[in-house]
Structures are given as C-alpha cells and as structure tokens.
C-alpha cells in the first residue's frame, strides 16, 4: 500500500509538473477567435442597397435572365408586372394542387424555387408533364449563389413586384464564395472558365456541363467552322439552329450581348475550344 501511494504521488507530481509548465512555463497564446463569416458590408447595408445587390445578382452572376426573359419564352417571367411577377403569383401557386414543396409563404416559395426548381413547375415550362424543371439549383455549380445572394434576389423580386419585402438582411453570411457579386469578374484564363463565367452550360451541353435547352455543343466542331461559331456567339439570332432538345429553338433565346461582355481573348479561346470539340 505504501508503494502504491508513493507511485500515485509520483505520477500526480509528474502531471502537476506538466500542467504547470504548460500554464506558467510557456506563454499562453490565445488563438484568434473563429472569423465571423465575412460580413462584408451586409451589416451596414440598407434595404435599398440590398435590393440593388439582388438586382445585380439577378442580371449578372445569377444568370437568371438567360432564360427568364420575354424573348425566348423558355421560362416564366419573374420580374414583370402584376400577375407575371413571381412574388405576386406565389400565393396562388402555393394553393395549386400540383404544388409539392414545403413552402408556406411567398418568400419561402421563391427561395425553394431557386434551390429546388422542380418543387413546382409552371405549366408548359417543364418536361415529363411539367414535373421536372430544366432550371439548375442556383446555389451550386457554376452559378453558386450564396444564401445572402439568394435572399437579395428575393428582396429584389418582391420589391419589383411592388409587394412587401419580407426578407431580412442576413447578418454574418458571406455574399459569395468569391468575394461578392460586386467584384468585377477577372478575365477567364481557360475555355472552361469562359464557359463557367458566361453560364453557357445553363442551356448547352458543353464540356462537363449538361444544359438541355440549346443545341448540344459537345461535337459542334464536326459540323461548323470557326467563322460560323464566332458569328454564332456574337450574333446568335443570325442563324437559328433546328436541333434544340425539347421545344424548337427560337430567336432571342441566347443573349445577344456576349460580344460586348466577353474580352477578345475570351471569345477566341471559346471559339477555338468549340472548333476542337469534335
């Protein structure tokens, strides 16, 4: 018993030595607290600025207007007037027997429709009897909107429709993984980056992207030459393809302003990439 106590005393003393040295022998560096998830300016943002951010995302990073425009009739209008505005039609859709989502308020409905587009597909705009939406989840993939950006877009849509803006400005959430929609996009360095930057994959099957609205571009180099492809990007309505999957192709579907948005090198990179896609 005596040796047992001696051993215990020895072990405890050793432990006290260790813990004492760790506490008093070496300086206590207090590691920096975890970063609050980059507030950027959200904390100081007024609702007007938040709505403006939403508009920017809606027209830019979100690539929403690629389809939600009144030219191609590929997707329902969202920011129109009256019933056309999604913020106004949402209450009706929530009551629609075809609705299978979980939302209970218009705000939730819009958010849901951005993340799970198939929860409700507006008649004539979907496949498989309007149960599947061609729209991607906007928080993933090349669009990759953050929660705050989704909220900003909802605020923008509600504001545009003239209904009450129910969204709260989120605190402590990053507006985006890449530093916000406000940051001007850097020129793309590879054709894949060009495709991601301009959201080609939202409509076209190209590279790893699997859009199903516009013509399949994976083997476009076989049938089209360089000049045709370049013109096709700069002036998409000049020659309308006939082989769109789903409904027939129509003028105005593809944005006509790519020529002004792309840099020269981006355009050339993309054209060369397409020519080689055989």
């Amino acid at each position: 018993m005596k040796s047992f106590l001696k051993i215990m005393l020895f072990c405890i003393l050793v432990l006290i030595g260790f813990v004492g040295y760790a506490n008093f022998g070496i300086p206590q560096v207090k590691p920096a607290p975890p970063p609050t998830e980059e507030k950027l300016d959200l904390g100081n943002m007024t609702m007007d600025q938040f709505i403006a951010l939403g508009e920017k995302v809606f027209n830019g990073k979100g690539t929403c207007t690629l389809c939600h425009n009144n030219v191609g009739k590929r997707a329902p209008m969202l920011d129109g007037a009256g019933e056309e505005a999604v913020a106004n039609s949402a209450p009706l859709r929530l009551k629609d027997p075809r609705y299978k989502g979980k939302a209970t308020t218009p705000e939730e409905y819009i958010r849901e429709s951005m993340k799970e587009p198939s929860a409700f597909v507006v008649a004539t705009f979907g496949s498989d009897g309007d149960t599947k939406s061609p729209m991607p989840n906007v928080t993933t993939g090349s669009i990759g909107m953050s929660e705050a950006e989704v909220d900003a877009v909802i605020a923008f849509l509600q504001n545009k429709a003239g209904s009450e803006v129910t969204v709260k400005i989120p605190v402590g959430a990053p507006p985006s993984a890449e530093g916000g929609a406000a940051a001007p996009a850097a020129p793309a360095k590879t054709p894949e980056e060009v495709i991601a930057k301009f959201g080609c994959g939202a409509c076209h099957k190209i590279g790893k992207e699997e859009g199903a609205l516009g013509p399949d571009l994976t083997h476009i180099g076989k049938s089209r030459n360089e000049a045709y492809l370049r013109k096709g990007i700069l002036d998409p309505d000049a020659d309308i393809a006939k082989n769109c999957p789903g409904a027939p192709c129509s003028p105005g579907m593809m944005p006509a302003d790519l020529g002004t948005k792309m840099t020269g090198s981006e355009l050339e990179m993309l054209v060369q990439y397409l020519v080689k896609s055989k």
Binding site: V29, E178, G179, A183, P184
Partner: peptide, 21 residues
Amino acid sequence: PVELRTIHPAPPSSLKAYGKS
C-alpha cells in the same frame, strides 16, 4: 510586460485584394 509576437502567423485561407479573392 513581455509581449509575445508570432513572427510568421498562419495565413488566412483566402485573401481579398485588387477587387478579387
């Protein structure tokens, strides 16, 4: 009092400069 200074602290995971990340 002794001030302990880490000369090479750990860098952040991303850096914002020149309008990009």
